[in-house]
């Protein structure tokens, strides 16, 4: 079975060692997804698989046949930016931009987890069906994405505007 990447079916690589990250960048020339640490410590390579955020640097591409992978290139539709992409621009949610694609894919996956009621490390009540996306919740849930420029305040504002219904 092929992998579906941003809606396009592509055959899995023959070499099992190819990470999903190297596959999208080097084989498919989708350079939006970034290689930061390449060891699961920075989040720059975050992509969505069937809507869930994962680290593509720790994923072997052969494991993902039949799955729908969305990279940052797949978030915009017909040239129109995803609302979160626009919010990152509006709130200066980046400086160098290297972590940005991972931040944006991660936040889209995070919003789905919050909607599903997945608890986090800072969730007080594990029985709560609905978990409001407070500043603490947002920061904890995005803690897997590092920004060495320190654009965190803008990142939080951008995500809060789109997914918490406020400019925070």
């Amino acid at each position: 079975m092929p992998i579906i990447i941003n809606g396009r079916e592509v055959p899995v690589p023959a070499d099992a060692r190819v990470s999903l990250l190297d596959f999208v960048r080097e084989h498919l020339e989708l350079y939006g997804t970034k290689k930061g640490c390449n060891q699961g410590a920075c989040g720059a390579c975050t992509v969505l698989v069937d809507g869930e955020r994962i680290l593509s640097c720790l994923a072997l591409a052969v494991q993902y046949d039949g799955r729908e992978v969305t990279t940052v290139e797949g978030l915009a539709s017909d040239g129109a930016l995803h609302p979160l992409q626009q919010a990152f621009i509006d709130h200066d949610g980046f400086q160098c931009g290297y972590c940005t694609p991972g931040q944006i894919c991660s936040a889209v996956g995070m919003a789905e987890e919050v909607a599903r009621g997945v608890p986090s490390h800072v969730t007080d009540d594990l029985g709560a069906g609905e978990i409001p996306l407070s500043q603490d919740e947002l920061r904890e849930r995005m803690s897997g994405n590092l920004c060495r420029c320190g654009a965190y305040n803008g990142i939080v504002d951008a995500i809060a505007e789109v997914f918490a219904g406020s400019g925070a």
Partner: peptide, 28 residues
Amino acid sequence: AEHPAVRAHYPMLTRAIVAGASAQIRNM
């Protein structure tokens, strides 16, 4: 971590899991 029975009957397990790694890694 998100399973209702784990949250209700074994909360330390949910808390331990969500204290580990990052959401991306826990999804994998």
